[in-house]
Write a protein that binds this DNA or RNA. Sequence first.
DNA 1: TAGTTACCGTGAACAGTGTTAACTAAGAGC
DNA 2: GCTCTTAGTTAACACTGTTCACGGTAACTA
Lengths: 240, 240
Amino acid sequence: MTQATRRDRGRADTDRDIRSQARALLVSDGPQAVTLRAIARELGITAPALYRYYASREDLIDHLRRDVCTDLAADLESALTDVPQEDHLGRVLTLCRGFRAWALAHPQEFALVFASPSGSPAEQHSVEKDSFGRVFLAVAGRVLATGLLLGRPDESVPDPLRADLTGFRDDLLATINGSGVDLPADLLGTGMAYALLQFWVRLYGQVALEVFGQVPFPLTNAEPLFESMLADLTREVGLH
Amino acid sequence: MTQATRRDRGRADTDRDIRSQARALLVSDGPQAVTLRAIARELGITAPALYRYYASREDLIDHLRRDVCTDLAADLESALTDVPQEDHLGRVLTLCRGFRAWALAHPQEFALVFASPSGSPAEQHSVEKDSFGRVFLAVAGRVLATGLLLGRPDESVPDPLRADLTGFRDDLLATINGSGVDLPADLLGTGMAYALLQFWVRLYGQVALEVFGQVPFPLTNAEPLFESMLADLTREVGLH
DNA sequence: TAGTTACCGTGAACAGTGTTAACTAAGAGC
DNA sequence: GCTCTTAGTTAACACTGTTCACGGTAACTA
């Protein structure tokens, strides 16, 4: 395709081309099609050259994961520009709907990032790392700052979870405050962190179910199912 | 390993050996390790011989999926033998906990069966096909037959879902009645089918989240989280 | 400006993969 | 006995990831 001489162009350009070609192969023909030789072929290059950029195929795919994440984040942020800062319900809704829509439109990428049993201890998704989580937390932070959200009472969180949840809460607080939102600590207790966690659990669960087609019967339109869950979720957390 | 001549043994035996070897490779080294040559090697056979049994590697893996399903079903049924027929709450709990435990113990198999974006139209998992769904429906049927379960009122199911849900309900009714339980039709309306669907959505979602390590912070013990969701679920549906 | 050095890319090669084709040997059925 | 079916073999093709020794180009340095 792009038969122009590659050597003289910058390394960063080539790197970007490699990743975008890998992405293209991933979306069009599935993960088993993203092969070093195919990427190289499409770039007018030989396969061993890719080793100047990535240590191995797995390394490349790891970077792909990150790319997918930041792209998703950008997608969501652009969707958010249309809805005003004060419309908290609207922002949460577009975020959730955007996540679902993206996942359904990019099942391969979704599977790669959100359904790899590879993940070692949860260090991988420690929220502040991936830009995707940051988008969620940015709007969550703004909603939390209003003080209108109702989490669960701190006493209602199961005892064995308390320690982990306070860690999570501290994490959230740091990330949110780091993203320009001023969030007083007393608005985000462990009960609230618990509510946020369950929000994510249900959102992720439903999206995964849809993407992997695990609805136990033929569903002509899954959107109402998602919307009803979304209504549940927002109601439970006091958004209206 | 088993160096005894294979030729003289029955075809069914060899077939079973192929699949069990494939399973062994899957659980020990992941899906990319289940390769025709490795299977054949372990069986004291050459790779092309496998084409007498399966049309392709993908075909073999399809059959593997079914095997995994029936194994899971057997696992769950054996777990159910310990809890008496009348203890409906207990049976539902062991079913859900058993599903989770199995998924966490066999992440590779779980990913293969419950998280392949391959799935064409939902024909694949039309419930009556896979033995796994049947186990769930068998206990669900018995609980439903008591009339103690509370679903949602039929009017509460979103309009666009109604048509699909009645189809689902008919499916359920047929499967349950086919499994030896006598379930009068008026105990399973669309509202109840809706409740069952949401039960499954949340169960699957949480399990998938755990298996794929998508909890957004390091969780030393995820069990309480699961148990709290389980309590929610059973409470919502009126089990106690 | 000339010389050295760093580095991107090449070609060949190795071990492994799925898959096909031609062939062999052992049974089963008449 | 003779076919004929069939499980299994060997050889081969077109791929794959990965390594290695080599070349030329670009940049840095004396």
